[in-house]
Amino acid sequence: MTRNRAPRLVFALALPLFLAACATEQERCISQQTREYRVVSNLLAQVQGNLDRGYAWQEREVLRPVYRMCRDVIRDRNGNHRIIERGCWEDRWDTERYRVPIDPAVETRKRDNLVARKAALEPRARAGIAACRSAYPENG
């Protein structure tokens, strides 16, 4: 059985557009100007969490059989339609999280590089925020 990813994909693509429509010009500008800084900050938090735990988390999609009640429409001897219920197995996709061992030396180097990158990006992010606030002052 193949997995239908279309609903998830549509939702994933539509959500940022929907949220962007709710943001003010200033908020959109700040979001755009600080994107790389936020990505580096999130990566740093993830690497630091890995170091604190001693392992990383990864996810994989697994196909699991689920027992449920299915309904079938049949015709009886007189030609009338009847609905019968029966137990059946259905395949469902599930996301499974599992631990992955890390090399603390590699994670420490990653953390140190991300700390340096974040420090280098901070002045540019602050300048971008200031520029957005002056270009799109909020009334209120």
Rank of each mutant, 00 (worst) to 15 (best):
M1P: 11
M1F: 12
N4M: 05
N4S: 09
R5P: 02
R5L: 10
R5Y: 13
R8E: 10
R8D: 10
R8F: 14
F11W: 13
A12L: 13
L13P: 01
A14N: 03
L15F: 07
P16S: 08
L17T: 00
F18E: 05
A20H: 09
C22R: 06
C22I: 03
A23M: 11
A23Q: 11
T24R: 04
Q26M: 04
Q26T: 00
E27Y: 08
R28K: 06
R28G: 03
C29R: 04
C29L: 08
S31W: 06
S31G: 15
Q32V: 09
R35L: 10
R35F: 12
R38V: 00
S41I: 01
L43K: 13
L44M: 02
A45V: 00
A45E: 03
Q46S: 15
V47F: 09
Q48C: 04
G49K: 06
G49C: 09
G49R: 12
G49D: 14
N50P: 02
D52P: 00
D52E: 12
G54M: 13
G54K: 12
Y55P: 10
A56G: 06
W57I: 12
E59S: 04
R60T: 04
R60P: 03
R60Q: 10
E61Y: 00
E61C: 01
R64V: 15
R64A: 15
R64E: 15
P65Q: 09
Y67Q: 15
R68V: 13
D72E: 06
R75E: 07
R75C: 06
D76V: 01
D76P: 00
R77L: 01
R77V: 06
R77G: 09
H81V: 10
H81G: 05
R82H: 15
I83L: 11
I84A: 03
R86Q: 13
G87A: 09
G87W: 11
D91I: 11
R92T: 11
W93Y: 12
D94V: 11
E96C: 03
E96H: 03
R97N: 08
R97V: 05
R97I: 06
Y98F: 14
R99A: 13
R99W: 01
R99M: 05
V100D: 05
T108W: 06
T108E: 14
R109N: 12
R111V: 08
R111Q: 08
R111K: 15
L114M: 10
L114Q: 04
V115G: 02
R117W: 08
R117F: 10
R117Y: 07
K118V: 02
K118L: 10
L121S: 05
E122S: 13
E122K: 14
P123R: 07
R126N: 15
A127G: 00
A127L: 06
A130I: 12
A130Y: 10
R133Y: 08
R133E: 14
A135H: 07
P137Y: 14
E138P: 00
E138R: 11
G140Y: 07
G140P: 02
